[in-house]
């Protein structure tokens, strides 16, 4: 059990390398003739978590649960609606452009689809050097040397440098994106579904590369994915997200051995596994994920929950509790003193 998890519930400013406290990101919904705001999509609705330096926190959930928005808000690509983001003990939730530029040297992001995250009109060399140009005061030679070093670290060749991104396969493009994120020696990397657009055999290579780089550079990862098997492979701790809120947080080992939240259980049971023989005790969720514009009252999962207790699930929002040491779960099953 890592320190980061123990402090998740009452996150403090200097917990781990990155911490968020009650972070919210709403997107306005406009409508009507006057294009007035008619509501909010509560993409991230009060998330507190912390990642200890050198660790990998997996953020898992289905599409629309807000996990990518959370990643981008932490990167300050979106401005948070409410709450705090602490990076290295510093509150960056309302940092201005010039302050963010200094901070971005230490936090970088890798996106899901390398084909769209690389500017098609730039060469590989320009792409990799872009963060160094804007975020460091390195000389041309230093940037060049660093580029060559990175190229070999991520498994590309020097001859690739002058080519355009579309000349590469998806796996190679993702290597370019990784090299770019690494170029300024950041401490934290937000990896937003970095292998979802890739074939499985390529995925394995990229996952191995990320682990190697984590060892070399002592990197901290926020690893966002919908794929539980990938999460299990690469993460130290796991946070499960549902409709803008965290459902459960625990170490990888514990959460996979003994999932507590009914949603976590259903999610795990839904993963098709070639080696699993019988599917008889599979939990099948009813219906679809409700809209984050108008989330269900009380526990957001109650409309699909297979362990629904009663009215309390519909009326009261469950608090994040610690059903066993170091494990956090927001479910009325554990709200008493279980």
């Amino acid at each position: 059990m890592s320190e980061s998890i123990q402090s998740t519930y009452g996150v403090a400013q200097d917990d781990g390398l990155l911490a968020t406290k009650d972070l919210k990101k709403y997107f306005p919904v406009k409508g009507g003739i006057l294009n007035r705001k008619v509501g909010d999509v509560k993409a991230v609705d009060g998330v507190s978590l912390a990642i200890e330096e050198g660790k990998t926190l997996g953020l898992v959930g289905e599409s629309g649960c807000g996990k990518s928005t959370l990643g981008k808000t932490i990167m300050r690509l979106h401005d948070p609606t409410d709450g705090n983001i602490y990076f290295d003990g510093e509150d960056i939730s309302d940092a201005g452009k010039s302050r963010m530029r200094k901070i971005r040297r230490n936090m970088q992001i890798i996106f899901q689809d390398p084909a769209s995250s690389l500017n098609p009109r730039m060469s590989v060399a320009e792409l990799i050097q872009e963060p160094m140009k804007t975020l460091t005061d390195w000389s041309k030679e230093e940037r060049r040397d660093r580029t060559l070093e990175l190229i070999s670290e991520v498994g590309l060749q020097e001859g690739h440098l002058q080519r355009a991104p579309h000349e590469f396969s998806g796996g190679q493009q993702q290597r370019v994106a990784i090299a770019r994120a690494l170029s300024v020696n950041p401490k934290l990397i937000v990896a937003d579904e970095p292998t979802s657009a890739l074939d499985v055999s390529v995925q394995a290579k990229i996952l191995n590369l990320l682990s190697d780089l984590q060892d070399t550079y002592d990197l901290t990862f926020l690893f966002i994915s919908h794929d539980l098997s990938v999460i299990k492979h690469i993460c130290d701790d796991v946070a499960v997200m549902y409709l803008g809120k965290l459902a459960e947080v625990a170490s990888t080992e514990e959460i996979f051995d003994d999932p507590k939240h009914p949603y976590t259980k259903a999610l795990m049971s839904a993963v098709p596994d070639a080696s699993a023989e019988s599917m008889t005790d599979r939990i099948l969720l009813e219906g679809d994920v409700p809209s984050p514009e108008n989330p269900p009252s009380g526990c957001r999962f109650h409309t699909r929950c297979q362990e629904y207790i009663g009215e309390i699930c519909e009326t009261d929002e469950p608090q994040f509790t610690e059903p066993s040491a170091g494990r956090y779960c927001s479910c009325h099953h554990y709200s008493g003193s279980t």
Partner: peptide
């Protein structure tokens, strides 16, 4: 997404527009 990527690389407005 490459605009987000540029922003996280700290690229300024003018350069994002022109490059």
């Amino acid at each position: 997404e490459y605009i987000d990527a540029a922003e996280s690389a700290g690229v300024g407005d003018i350069r994002i527009m022109t490059r």
